[in-house]
């Protein structure tokens, strides 16, 4: 049975994140004050038979460990899994 896994990829702390900055600037312009530290990353969802291998997938392809952090979230059994 496969598992639904989510991989959250975000820029490493301290790395220039112009997308996050652009969003952070846009929110107050719409009246949403009190927002800070906005970062924009990627969400990758996958059904995997062996969730223990997802870390390796992140290191080799899904993220670039030089510039990105990743977080693996075990979501739920996959539909029809």
């Amino acid at each position: 049975m496969s598992r639904r896994v989510r991989v959250l990829v975000r820029p490493k702390a301290g790395i220039l994140d112009p997308q996050g900055q652009a969003v952070e600037r846009a929110l107050p312009a719409l009246g949403f004050d009190g927002v800070a530290n906005v970062h924009v990353g990627r969400l990758i969802e996958l059904d995997v038979e062996d969730p223990s291998r997802v870390g390796e997938m992140c290191e080799k392809l899904l993220a670039n460990p030089l510039i990105e952090d990743y977080e693996i979230v075990d979501a739920a059994p996959a539909h029809g899994g």
Binding site: P11, I15, L16, P18, Q19, A22, L66, I67
Partner: peptide
């Protein structure tokens, strides 16, 4: 060495 990030201006 290194990586290429989006331009600072996007």
């Amino acid at each position: 060495p290194g990586a290429l990030l989006p331009n600072k201006t996007l």
